[in-house]
């Protein structure tokens, strides 16, 4: 049963990684850019949700009830961070795009530093805590299995979001247009796909999902800090590579897998060295299967 609980814990963390990884992967798909600012958008989401929940001494929770307040925070963060993502693309990436890959990377690092320090300037350098009164804290027991309500909520919501995205991207024509744009921009344009629109959609949805993950992360651990973006960003990014960058189902799988590996690594190998193993796995995968676990091989033309 301990194993099952650990699996659940792993899946919970994994779903954070997966939601963030989706943003990395989608942006990489259309722009071939590792968006280093993505982790900080996740942190921003966490803080925005926190602010909404503590606003007016918990007015949202009092007005709409515990769950209503949570939903409000999640929605607020979803839209606000999504808009931040669109703004980021417009201000920092689009003007640099023509100059090549390296300046784009530096611009992304610049946005990351900017966001991280904006968060610090607004909310202060110290840890903040989601108050206990705005999130459910009780647990349920299924036989020997001990699960918190929050965990269940996170798992259900993440899976719903991922399924929705999976449906949009894999099953609709619009989703096919997104995938087509990632594969061959020019051909997609010929067929009538407005690449700018796709880019805006990606830069809204990717960060928005990260924002939701940020709020859920805050509700789960309760404690948030302005530097959390680096850490989660790096892990989620590893997950993206693990699955295969640019491929959306792969990012989900990579995230969940990483969460589970980490949990079991911490439990059965060493909690201090677990992150080292994570990165070692990353490097080994890149050496032997640079396309990730389920990424497709792309031939390089000379």
């Amino acid at each position: 049963m301990i194993i099952l609980e650990q699996l659940l814990n792993g899946l919970t963390i994994g779903s954070f990684y997966a939601l963030i990884a989706l943003g990395y992967s989608m942006v990489y798909g259309v722009m071939k850019l590792i968006n280093f600012a993505h982790g900080d958008l996740f942190a921003l989401g966490s803080y925005l949700g926190y602010s909404l929940l503590i606003w007016g001494a918990g007015a949202a929770s009092q007005r709409f009830g515990l769950w209503g307040g949570m939903i409000a925070a999640l929605l607020f963060s979803f839209f606000a961070v999504g808009c931040a993502g669109v703004l980021m693309e417009r201000v920092a990436y689009r003007p640099v795009q023509k100059s090549g890959r390296l300046p784009l990377v530096v611009s992304a690092l610049g946005v990351s530093i900017f966001l991280q320090n904006s968060i610090m300037a607004i909310w202060g350098p110290r840890y903040q805590a989601y108050p206990a009164s705005v999130v459910p804290t009780h647990a349920i027991h299924l036989g020997w299995l001990h699960v918190t309500i929050m965990q269940l909520f996170i798992l259900i919501l993440s899976f719903m979001l991922m399924l929705t995205l999976y449906y949009i991207v894999q099953k609709t024509t619009f989703g096919a247009a997104i995938r087509a744009t990632a594969l061959d921009r020019e051909m997609a344009t010929i067929l009538g796909v407005d690449v700018r629109k796709i880019t805006l959609f990606i830069f809204f949805l990717g960060p928005a999902l990260g924002g939701v993950a940020g709020v859920m992360n805050g509700m789960y651990y309760r404690q948030i800090s302005f530097v959390m973006g680096w850490n989660y960003g790096l892990k989620a990014f590893t997950a993206t590579i693990l699955g295969g960058i640019g491929n959306i189902p792969a990012a989900m799988l990579g995230g969940l897998l990483l969460g589970i590996v980490e949990m079991f690594g911490a439990a059965y190998i060493s909690s201090a060295w677990k992150d080292v193993f994570t990165f070692l796995i990353l490097i080994i995968i890149l050496i032997f299967r640079p396309t990730g676990l389920i990424g497709e091989k792309v031939a390089e033309k000379v």
Partner: peptide
């Protein structure tokens, strides 16, 4: 040809109708 290699045949065809939707 420039077909979208990781999309199915039918998805490729459907995308052909994208501009005329």
């Amino acid at each position: 040809r420039r077909v979208f290699s990781t999309l199915t045949v039918e998805e490729n065809l459907n995308l052909g109708a994208y501009g005329g939707r």
